[in-house]
Design a binder for these strands. Structure first.
Length: 269
DNA sequence: AACGAAACCTGCGCGC
DNA sequence: TGCGCGCAGGTTTCGT
């Protein structure tokens, strides 16, 4: 499901419904999602209140009284807020909250992660301590310095969350299309001017997607807060065989950095 | 040091 | 209908 715009949409929706709710108890039905000591987590999360929900890159950060709960949704993680409905087979963590609310973490592929860390230290601990800045905050001089000596394809670099955070497979393809750069272009060949254009394009794409509530493709189950409309704005992603909106030549699909990648071979060099 | 491939999981659509 | 394969909005770990 989630790249930055989808996670931001989830954050906003959850915050509206969960602010100041207290966690009365928690049931962990699939323990591998919890990356902190399980008993520590279960013992300490109870009786804390959700003060705020923040986001860094693709991470959701639940700010509690003493601790924070950092969640990554990976490919298919979703949240649902229910009351006392039966537990679905893909619901792995159940938070029973005040006001009879039941917050369900739902994840078909079980790739998601939860880190439970002290509030005064989490920024300097894994997994947030090495996270890159988002494109809108990234300094062009530092960005160029980081990429101009590397031999990886530019797409792999843009997907590297330690360099810049927030982009995933959809928005990288759209960013590269806007910047007219081919995903296989070796990062060291990207000029300083093109690097600047990449940051600007990424910012533009992400901002627009946040405004439209993210992108919904092949995700038919309505997940809380994610009924995005950015799929109507996609220029290349999922568009193989269709005409490029700029030049009219067919969009092709290739594999780059192990990911399905959509490109206009005429516009992107 | 720096890559790409495999691994982590499950479900879906496709071709036979 | 059933089976095997490839693919999926992500990241870490394992080889070379």
């Amino acid at each position: 499901m989630p790249e930055l715009p989808e996670v931001e949409t989830v954050r906003r929706t959850l915050l509206l419904k969960l602010k100041d709710k207290k966690i009365l108890n928690v049931d962990v039905l699939y323990t591998n999602i919890i990356k902190t000591d399980l008993n520590t987590f279960k013992r300490n999360v109870v009786n804390q209140t959700i003060k705020d929900i923040q986001r860094m890159g693709k991470y959701l950060i639940f700010i509690l009284d003493q601790d924070v709960m950092i969640m990554h949704l990976r490919m298919e993680g979703k949240f649902f807020i229910k009351t006392k409905e039966a537990i679905d087979k893909h619901e792995h963590i159940i938070f029973n909250l005040s006001d009879h609310l039941s917050l369900r973490y739902h994840d078909v592929r079980k790739f998601g992660t939860l880190h439970f860390l002290p509030k005064d230290q989490y920024l300097s601990l894994y997994p947030l301590n090495k996270l890159g800045l988002e494109p809108k905050d990234k300094d062009i001089v530092e960005f160029y310095k980081q990429i101009h000596h590397t031999h990886r394809p530019i797409k792999a670099v843009l997907l590297d969350q330690n360099i810049i955070s927030g982009l995933g497979n959809i928005y990288v393809d759209e960013t590269l299309f806007l910047a007219k750069i081919h995903p296989t272009k070796i990062a060291s060949k990207v000029t300083k001017k093109q690097a600047q254009l990449l940051l600007e394009s990424a910012t533009k794409v992400l901002d627009k997607a946040v405004e439209l509530g993210g992108t919904t493709i092949r995700s038919y189950t309505s997940s809380l807060g994610v009924h995005g409309r950015f799929q109507n704005e996609l220029n290349v992603h999922t568009k193989q065989g269709q005409p490029c909106p700029i030049c009219g030549k067919d969009i092709i699909k290739i594999k780059v950095a192990g990911r399905g990648s959509y490109v206009c071979p005429n516009c992107q060099k």
